[in-house]
Simulated assay, not measured.
Amino acid sequence: MNASSTPLLTVRGLSRSIGARRLFDIGELAFPRATAIVLTGQNGAGKTTLLRMIAGLEPAPGATVHWTDAHASARSAPLAPLPRELRERIAYLHQHPYLFRTSVRENIAYGLRARGLTRDEMARRVDEALAWAGVSHLKDTAPERLSGGEVQRVALARAKVLEPDLMLLDEPTSSLDGQAREQVIALVRELAEEGRTVVMICHDRELINLPGVVRWKLGDGVLDTHHR
Rank of each mutant, 00 (worst) to 15 (best):
R125P: 03
Y92V: 02
E190G: 07
K160C: 02
R87S: 03
A74L: 05
G116E: 10
P7R: 10
I108V: 11
V151G: 02
V104M: 08
G134W: 00
G13N: 04
D220W: 09
R158H: 05
E194D: 13
A74C: 05
G27R: 15
K160A: 07
R145E: 10
A34N: 14
R205S: 14
P81L: 07
E171T: 02
E194P: 11
D25L: 11
L223G: 01
S5Q: 14
E128S: 12
S103F: 14
T64W: 10
A159M: 08
A77V: 10
A133Q: 00
E28I: 03
T118C: 11
S147G: 13
L169D: 01
V213G: 00
S136L: 08
T225C: 12
T173C: 13
F100R: 04
C202M: 09
D165Y: 11
P143M: 13
Q183E: 15
R16Y: 03
V151D: 00
V11P: 07
L57H: 04
F24R: 01
F24L: 08
P78K: 03
A36Q: 09
R105W: 11
G27M: 09
H203K: 12
D177T: 14
L162M: 13
E58D: 12
A74D: 08
A55V: 06
A36R: 15
A114P: 01
T68E: 07
I54C: 06
I54M: 15
P143E: 07
V198M: 04
S174N: 00
L168N: 00
L9K: 04
L169G: 00
V126G: 04
R215D: 01
F100D: 04
G56V: 10
V38R: 02
K139A: 15
S73F: 01
E190I: 02
V161A: 09
V188F: 05
Q152H: 05
E206R: 15
M53C: 09
Y98H: 15
L166K: 01
Y110T: 09
I18L: 15
